[in-house]
């Protein structure tokens, strides 16, 4: 099952939202709530998805929507660590790609392939 936890960064400088395991619709609500709270703090958000095994459409929608809302609020949402194969596979199957996305946040889309994320 999916796991969503805040982890303190080394040196106590802020924290990272760590996502792990299989992110399915069962965890979508929790994911939304956590992200919404982060949005409301008006702080930049750093996420780490490198330990995600797989993801379904419900969670992808939450992540996309969150990225868009952060962008809209002028708030940074960045990824620490890469995007694992499990996420890439789901995005490919769902045909989700910044190439055919209308969102204003597309230029910073975390799903862009072959790019290193901060």
């Amino acid at each position: 099952m999916g796991n969503i936890t805040w982890q303190d960064k080394a040196g106590g400088r802020g924290r990272t939202l760590k996502l792990e395991g299989t992110l399915t619709i069962e965890t979508a609500s929790e994911l939304k709530d956590v992200l919404l709270q982060a949005l409301e703090t008006a702080e930049p958000l750093e996420m780490d998805m490198s330990a995600v095994e797989s993801v379904d459409l419900a969670c992808v929608q939450v992540l996309c929507s969150a990225h868009c809302s952060f962008h809209h609020a002028g708030q940074k949402m960045t990824l620490a660590g890469g995007i694992p194969a499990g996420i890439h596979a789901a995005l490919e199957a769902l045909a989700i790609s910044p190439d055919a996305c209308d969102s204003p946040c597309t230029p910073e889309c975390p799903w862009k392939k072959g790019e290193d994320h901060e």
Partner: peptide, 9 residues
């Protein structure tokens, strides 16, 4: 894929 109906968080 079309995501244009996806609302804000």
């Amino acid at each position: 894929c079309h995501l244009k109906e996806l609302p804000g968080l």
